[in-house]
Design a protein around this nucleic acid. Sequence first.
DNA 1: CACCAGGCAAGTA
DNA 2: TACTTGCATGGT
Length: 219
Amino acid sequence: MRKALLAIYRKLFRHFGPRHWWPGEGAFEVMVGAILTQNTAWPNVEKAINNLKKEKALSPKKLETIKLKKLRRLIKPSGYYNEKAKKLKNLTAFLRRSCGFEIKKLKRKKLKELRRSLLGVNGIGPETADSILLYALEKPVFVVDAYTRRIFSRLGLIGENAGYAEIQSFFTDNLPKKTKLFNEYHALIVELGKTYCRKGRAICGKCPLKLGKKRGNMV
DNA sequence: CACCAGGCAAGTA
DNA sequence: TACTTGCATGGT
């Protein structure tokens, strides 16, 4: 299985090239993006982030004190703005108490502890926590998302109703535990998903992987 | 025009 | 424990 997973990775890399993720500058911006992109297309998130930048509000200290109402208005294009505004507030509160806004200190914490504490924040679930760990804190954590489940179940490599943890260990148990590799692999999966493997659509013929067609397409 | 997007938490049975 | 539902804008 190790070979198969690496072969898929290489195929995707050849096809798409490096993705240069995360498309944001700085750990905090990545964390904000991770929350704003929940069930939301990235272009909408970019608009929200640009609004925050224009208001010079894209720092933990600013987001800590900004009025909820104003925050809602700024992030509006990313959808779910009432909930996401609260979530961003929860994130800043977490950063305040866990490291006093010094991300370096956060990086030094034990991975397992850190993940648990992230999951304790209301608004941060498994995927968001892992995205933060991988793309903001550069920890070797594999991120599982809807595309990962869809693509690898279409490939027949994981069960259709495998849970998050199960899918995650499928990857981490069968790949070298390298941050760089996990970073690129997840980004490539998303690119493949967006381009050839969207929900409810037929798979494009140019898809670089052989994905099952009958059952999987509508998942 | 209908449906989906780089989810999550709260509610229900 | 295992489903379901609300959240909401913008692209295809």
